[in-house]
Structures are given as C-alpha cells and as structure tokens.
Amino acid sequence: MRVVALLVLLVLELAVFASVSGADMSSMSGILNYLELKFLDLVPGLAPVLVLSVGMTLVLVTAGIDLSVGSMLALVAAVMSLFDGGTAFWFTAVPLGLVVGVGLGLFNGALVARLDVPPIVATLGTMIFYRGLCQLVMRDAERAPFFDVPGYEWLGGFSGALVTVGLVAGVGGWFWGRSRWRRELLLVGGNRVAARYAGVPVDRRLMETYAVMGMLAWVAATCFTARNGAVNASTATGLELKVIVAVVLGGTRVEGGRGSLIGSVLGALLVAVLDDGLREAKGWSDEHLPFEISHFRYLLLGLLLVVGVWLNTRIGHRDEG
C-alpha cells in the first residue's frame, strides 16, 4: 500500500522536476535518457543518505532516534582524512574509521541504554559533541587525501555506490528480514517492559543498534568522501534530518515497534530526488522565485517530517495489518 504510494510520489516528483529542468520529455527515448542520466548522477550522491536511513530504521524501531548521524559521518571522515593517500590508506585509515564509527555509535548506545538518557536528548548532545570533536580534529582546514588512494574513487562512482548500497540495503535487508535480532528489536521498541520479561537483553540490543548505526556512519563516510574527495569541519551538517524524514516517509513509526526497510529506501530516494530536483531547479527558481531554492529545502523537509509522522499515526494501524 505504502510502497505503491511512495512509488507514485516518486514518479510524480521526477516528472515535475524534469519539466522544470527543461529536459526533453516528448519521446519515450527522451524520458529514458533523462532517467538514465538522472540515476547515474543520483545514486552516488544518494548513497550516504540511503545507507544511514537503513541504520535509522533500526534505531527508530527500538523507539529511539539518532540525531548525531551527520556529525558521526563528519567525524569519521575527518579522522580518515588525517592519513595520507596511497595504498596504505586502505589498511590504516579505513579500519580506523570503522573503529571510530562503531566507538561513536557505542557511546550513543551507552548514553541511551546504560545511563537512561532519552535518545533524542542524548543524540542531540552527541550531535554537538561530535561536531565539536570534528572541529578539534579539522581546525579550519579542509583535507582531501581521498582521491590519492588507489581504487577509492571507484566507490564514489555509480557502480561503487550501487554495490555499497546493494550490500547494505540488500544483504543487510535480507538478514534483517529473517533475523532473530529483528524480532527482539521489534519487541524492545514495541514494549520495552515486555521485552525484559521475555528475556530479551534490552540494554545490549540497544547498544548493538546504535553501534550498527555507527558502523553505517562509517560506510556512509567512505561513500561520501569517495564522491566529494574532501572533508571539513562542517561536512554533512543537517544530514540527520534528511535521513529521519526519509525513514518516517517510508512508514517507520517514531514510537517504535514497527519499521520497513523497503519503505526507508524508497523514502530516501524520494528525499534525494527532491533534494536533487531543487538543486537542478536553481536556474528556474532564480528567474521565478525571490529567494534561493536551497533554503526552501529545509522548510520542505520539516513539513515532510510532520506530514509523515501524522500520516503514520493516522493510517499506521490499518497499514499492512
């Protein structure tokens, strides 16, 4: 139901932006051509949001939230950028990035599970804190060792991004769908007390969830750096909202206990197309609108979040019974 609705929305969105950007829409081949170009361009840029929204789905399922994903991504990328390019990068910076990512995720998890800080407050705090660490690491510099690493750039291309996303969303999704872990997380999010009574190690599951989020932040950081090639202290600010909006639009409830990975992936596509479309529409908007359309993006994201949550509370009970 929701999947169909999301697909329809996606097509509508593409159509609107295509007409705004003035692409040739008169023939079938024109449309296909446009779509091909669009996706070649879109997928690599979309990869970080997609990867993170997979993790965010898990976090929301546990009735949590992670606002620190943007800062985590930036911090992991910053730490990796401290190394010089070259083959050794693969054996030093990349594994270290993984360790940092998981460590940051575990720190979030510890705050939520062990100290009982409400997730939104805890991760709002770490969002600021990690960004602060990022500033400490980066100072005012911008570093770009990534394109000097052999093979790294491939990750940022279409095929590399597709493989990464496929691994995370496909294999991860397959595992998620069939795993015992998922059942336990659904219980933790749906009724934490019942989870404790059913013998689910609630604290541990929460820690694991946030750690997975940290790991995915590392994956997203590699996708991001492989495409952009450079990182600075304010990289990926505001990314968390995009991710949350994507997941919420995909039908995952913020109250926990239910979530759909396919929905999240479609939601991420929707948000990315919107984002991309707004960027493309710059030429159009400069003529027709008195302000920069990128500012409008934030407004739209906020609006989408409210509408998404509202729809979820409204139709959540009827959907997928």
Binding site: R183, L186, L187, G190, N191, V193, A194, Y197, A198, G257, R258, H317, G321
Partner: peptide, 13 residues
C-alpha cells in the same frame, strides 16, 4: 498488556 504483549504485533510473532 504491560508486561507481555505488543498490541499491534501479530499473533505469529
């Protein structure tokens, strides 16, 4: 209700 169930999970799970 409080200790055992999640009301909107299905019987199977």
């Amino acid at each position: 209700k409080r200790h055992g169930l999640v009301a909107d999970h299905d019987v199977s799970s």
